[in-house]
Every structure is written in structure tokens, then in C-alpha cells.
Write a protein that binds this DNA or RNA. Structure first.
Lengths: 94, 94
DNA sequence: TTCCATGTGTTAGCGCGCTAATACACTGGT
DNA sequence: ACCAGTGTATTAGCGCGCTAACACATGGAA
């Protein structure tokens, strides 16, 4: 298989990784620990918010994430600028 | 398909996205523009370094990324803490 | 040997995402 | 009417990744 384009876009690189382990290793090399933590926390919060069963303050107590950040994630989730979260959240069950 | 575990890990979420577009949309929702730019630049630099044909100063001139950052990416690439870059770079040909 | 480009390290300063703390308007239960 | 809990906004301060601008040692070419 020939790779014609000289450089692989970030999303293309991630899309071609199938296993959870490969993605993990790639992210660890690409991100700093602080960044990886921040991204994981946001994604975690997004999933909790999507369930719609906990208040901001409960989520803060459970995860340690500030309500400021929770509010920001909630805004992205609500406004759905690109539906990127939905594409994954929608796969959880039918 | 039932999703038994309550929350999906970040790497699992990305691993289950097949298309480049889905990954892109997910990243755009998850990351801030500044973060996405930083990650993309690092990945871009990593690929250029992997070719081994340009000096740090050339890369800086081409991409606008500082030699400090280039050096940091180079160090990760050299030390290969988890081989995450390699897993993608190795797929480019052969 | 001289000189220049290289990889690498160091410092200062900036931008920005995060926390902590607080405040406000709204709503449902008592 | 009151009050507790909610989503949300605001402020100050901190950590950290980035840039800019150096400095330094090494190595190859003139």
C-alpha cells in the first residue's frame, strides 16, 4: 500500500489505528500528561452530562473537575457545533 | 450491541471511530482550537523529523514551530517511550 | 585551523485552560 | 412567601506549553 500524500493528517493517523492500545500509545507520545488528563476528564464529563442525571456540583464532587469546566463542556454538548460527541455517544446503545 | 461498561475511555472512543471525518468532528468538540493546533503541529513535526532530511532551523522556517518545541518532539521520537509514533509512521510504506 | 551549520540547552515572557470562590437568576417544594 | 438546589457567569490566580533569543559544543568543509 502506497502512501501518496507526503504528510498524514492527525485525524487520518488516528482513524487508521484500530486497537485501543495503539490509540493509547499514540496519544501518550503526542500529548503531555497534563493534556491527556485534561482531554480524558472532558470526555468523562461529557458522558456524565449526556446521561442527564447529575447536577454540576455532583459531577464536581465525583470527578474533581470544576463547575467552570463542566459548564464549558456542557455548552459544547448543547450547541453541538459538529456533532462529534454525538457520533460516539450515540453508539452506546441503540 | 450492548455497552456494558458505564463510561468509554478516550482511547476506546477514538478507536471505534473509523472515518477521518468522525475523528475530526470528535476532536473539534473535545479540544480547543489552540490545543488542536498544537497537537497537529507536533504530529506534523514528528513526521518531518522522521524523514530525517531537514534541520531544526529548516523545519522552523517551514512550519513556524520553534526549535524548542521541535527539540522536544525529537526527544520523544528518539526515546520512543511507548512506540506510539512508530505505530503510525511505520505504516507509511512497505 | 578556521568557520559555519548543526543539535541541544536555557532563560524570559505570553497565552490559555484549569481551579477556587463567589454571585446571580430561576424553579420546585414546603 | 420562603428557601434550597439548580445552571450559569465572573474574577483572580496558577500551571504549563509555546515562542523568541540566546548560548554552547560538535563536526564537516574550506
Amino acid at each position: 500500500m502506497e502512501q501518496s500524500t507526503k504528510y498524514v493528517k492527525l485525524e487520518a493517523a488516528l482513524a487508521q489505528l484500530d486497537s485501543q492500545e495503539d490509540v493509547r500509545d499514540f496519544l501518550v507520545d503526542l500529548c503531555t500528561p497534563a493534556e491527556l488528563r485534561a482531554l480524558s476528564e472532558r470526555w468523562h464529563v461529557a458522558q456524565i452530562l449526556d446521561e442527564g442525571e447529575k447536577s454540576y456540583r455532583e459531577i464536581q464532587a465525583d470527578t474533581g473537575v470544576s463547575t467552570t469546566t463542566i459548564g464549558r463542556v456542557a455548552r459544547f454538548l448543547r450547541d453541538e457545533p459538529h456533532g462529534g460527541y454525538r457520533a460516539v455517544l450515540g453508539k452506546k446503545d441503540t
